[in-house]
């Protein structure tokens, strides 16, 4: 199938537009000088990903992306930025001289992931999951075949949580130590 044929279908048009929008906003995430703008470009990129899932009629995954990533993770990002160093007005210096190795690493990850998915699926058409509902199919898969990875992920999250608390906790000064003992 040539590229012109591919463009014949309106669904592919939408895919192209959304894909380009995702690419642009991901690029802006790393180039934006203002940290709040960077976070908002990430919201746009994830929103695009949710639209792609919707186009594959994976409604459940799409709304979970909105709920978890846009609605929780990035809100917490923004919240963290706001309570630490909210840049009101022009913000400069959000830049790093070390650009080569992260760029190489990202390209390598991209190549690896693309290669792996092409190897795994090739030109297989995505089949419709979802009889009776895709939520049920996903739930059974997640707590059946994939139950061990699922639990491992929750364990990793727990470890990260405990680590975060440990790092964020300030050691008490001797005077405060005294005070606490007195109470």
């Amino acid at each position: 199938m040539s590229f012109i044929d591919w463009l014949g279908s309106p669904v592919n048009w939408v895919f192209l537009v959304v894909g380009l929008a995702i690419l642009f906003s991901s690029w802006r995430v790393v180039t934006a000088k203002n940290v709040v703008h960077a976070a908002l470009y990430l919201v746009a990129a994830l929103g695009g990903a949710a639209i792609l899932f919707l186009m594959l009629s994976a409604e459940f995954v799409a709304w979970v992306v909105v709920l978890v990533y846009i609605g929780a993770v990035l809100v917490l990002f923004l919240f963290g930025i706001m309570i630490t160093r909210a840049p009101t007005g022009k913000d400069v210096g959000l830049d790093t001289p070390h650009k080569t190795s992260p760029a190489l690493l990202s390209v390598a990850t991209f190549v690896l992931l693309s290669w792996a998915s092409i190897q795994a699926f090739g030109t297989t058409q995505v089949e419709s999951v979802g009889e009776p509902t895709s939520t049920e199919v996903l739930g059974i898969a997640l707590l059946g075949r994939f139950v061990i990875p699922f639990e491992v992920v929750s364990f990793v999250l727990l470890a990260a949580l405990i680590g975060g608390v440990t790092i964020a906790r300030r050691d008490l000064t001797p005077a405060e130590e005294e005070e606490r003992r007195a109470v």
């Binding site: 709304w63 979970v64 709920l67 929780a72």
Partner: peptide, 10 residues
């Protein structure tokens, strides 16, 4: 219900 949760988080 998932849609409601997603929207209220937005």
């Amino acid at each position: 219900l998932l849609f409601i949760l997603a929207m209220s988080s937005l």
